[in-house]
Amino acid sequence: MTTSEQSVGESRAEAAADPRQTGRQLRPGLWHTINERYPGSMITKDDAVPLARLNKPLAEARVVMVSSCGVHLRTQRPMDVTHPLGYFGFRRVPSSARHDDLIIHQLKFPHDDADLDINVSFPVERLQEMVEAGELGSLSESFYSFIGYNMDPEKFEAEVATPIADAIGREAHADLALLVPA
């Protein structure tokens, strides 16, 4: 172990903040690779979004999670993962769901480890524990899940991104949003 690298249990205060000393991206140049293979499918933004502020302590905050790993309840109809242009819809997943209630239906990323423990991609049980421990206030009733593979940024924005953001604004009553790609 180098001086800059921590074991998992060490506190953040001991962390070396120098990013040059941290691990590198395991698949470097991913943006260029994807853009070369699927021209026009990757978005680039020039403007930063002004920061919204958390206006209460974490211990009182309600958290919503959005994932592109394609997780859903075993009882829900799987999303279409074979369509060559992607699937433009989403699912609500109860924040009270446990590992055994959930399944990842996706082709485009390795989820064999998440199949063993859903929290590798979708840490729903860890969030539940943080609420029980009083670290977080509560969880929104539903979390949101969709398929990350899509070839049409405009259609994605209109039919997935905006509807999910609208749903969060309308029904999640969240103070903070955690977004986890796959």
Binding site: R37, Y38, P39, G40, S41, L85, M151, D152, P153, K155
Partner: peptide, 8 residues
Amino acid sequence: MSTSYLRQ
């Protein structure tokens, strides 16, 4: 390839 690229 985005949809527009395919359409082209």
